[in-house]
Design a protein around this nucleic acid. Structure first.
Ligand SMILES: [Mn+2]
Ligand SMILES: [Mn+2]
Ligand SMILES: [Mn+2]
Ligand SMILES: [Mn+2]
Lengths: 217, 217
DNA sequence: CTAAAAATTTAGGCTGGCCTAAATTTTTAT
DNA sequence: ATAAAAATTTAGGCCAGCCTAAATTTTTAG
């Protein structure tokens, strides 16, 4: 049985590892968990003792199979709860992260099974992230960044890579909604910002910073 | 902001206080929280420092207004989550206590408001316990125990005073369902057990131990 | 190849929540 | 009224998870 803290570390290691290759560093973990490197080292020793990570001093860290299984389980719960909060309780996608951060730790297998059924076995969370399967597979989506699209292309907005309230509210404001199809009408050669056409009349300005954090297919 | 542990103590103090009069004792708290008296004393000092309880050494403990407000807030959350688990996820009333014990600590006012709306502003939890109002009033029900009913009376089963899985499953087994109307057909003079008629044909034996824990009106 | 910089770990310490054993206060029984 | 019993508190200590400061290892730059 893991504590909240251990579960959060596993999830964070998973997320950092999936954004790079090779080992995850102590400092990166310290930044993500808003703690100090010394505290991370303490925790890494504990997780290594429990064989949830591979850890050699000074060499960074990698999840074991069991560690990855657990991490995916937490991520599954997190995303299912986010779907619940948005679809059933009517929260905005910019409001649900912190609640899901707590709900993901509720200890009951059966609860997750029933929640999943209640929600109709959703494939994606409100941010477009795929929900890991009950058996612990993370679906690979193969999306591209909007910033990599070319002028003239029509793409579908699929997911966000940044989950901050500010970013999500900015998207709300710009009518950039997941699932909608947009056409790249112009790419500014100087600042790489993008003009996209939504529907027939509406044209929206998307800065490079924003376009880099929007996944499309 | 209170920790899980502090919230659990407040709730426990409230529950014990409502089953008696006067101050709640250290030993009673130790038993309910499955800790030792010395640990309770530690926590009482902390809660007293936060002015959530009135506490004089050796004299037992009583909630302050603020402490009671908080306790009722936790109880409200607990009972709303139990309704969710039973009505929406289809859990049995004997399965939900431990999950609600964790869910009650999720920190979000808005979550409780929306959950309440989603559930249709329920008045009672699956065990027949009234749900405190958003403003912190605990509805007074004025039920009697089935063991206090007299032969010939027809009463409605309203709530249980005991929440153990064993007790609730025993009621399931005996077809003693909240909301149903039963007629007391016979009270055994020797062991105070009760025979009740459910509907037209079915007669059920109810031991005194069970009848004492069934509330009726 | 070496010295400085950066990253990481170790040492030692703190708080919350728990424990046992011992001391103290209150209650109960004679 | 007093002594024994029961209840409670105090003393001292443990573990999880965090911290700062100091030591160590690895990386980078000249
Ligand atoms: Mn979390
Ligand atoms: Mn999400
Ligand atoms: Mn609880
Ligand atoms: Mn209940």
């Amino acid at each position: 049985m893991q504590s909240f803290t251990e579960e959060n570390y596993l999830k964070t290691i998973y997320n950092l590892a999936s954004k790079q290759q090779g080992e995850v560093s102590t400092n990166a973990l310290a930044e993500m968990t808003a703690t100090k490197a010394a505290s991370v080292t303490d925790m890494l020793r504990k997780l290594a003792d429990k064989e949830l990570i591979h850890y050699k001093k000074y060499q960074g860290v990698r999840l074991t199979e069991e560690g990855e299984r657990l991490a995916l389980q937490i991520i599954r719960r997190h995303r299912l709860w986010e779907v619940f909060l948005v679809q059933k309780l009517g929260f905005g996608w910019d409001e649900v992260h912190d609640m899901a951060e707590e709900l993901e730790h509720i200890r009951s297998e059966e609860l997750v099974v029933r929640l999943d059924t209640f929600l109709g076995h959703p494939q994606f969370d409100p941010h477009g992230d795929p929900i890991p399967t009950p058996t612990g597979q993370m679906p690979e989506m193969g999306y591209r960044k909007l910033s990599d699209a070319e002028a003239g292309e029509a793409v579908c907005l699929r997911a966000v890579m940044e989950h901050s309230t500010e970013f999500l509210q900015h998207l709300n404001h710009s009518s950039l909604t997941l699932g909608s199809i947009v056409t790249v009408s112009e790419i500014n050669a100087f600042d790489k910002s993008v003009l996209v056409q939504i529907g027939n009349d509406r044209t929206v300005f998307v800065s490079y910073e924003v376009a880099k954090n929007l996944l499309v297919s």
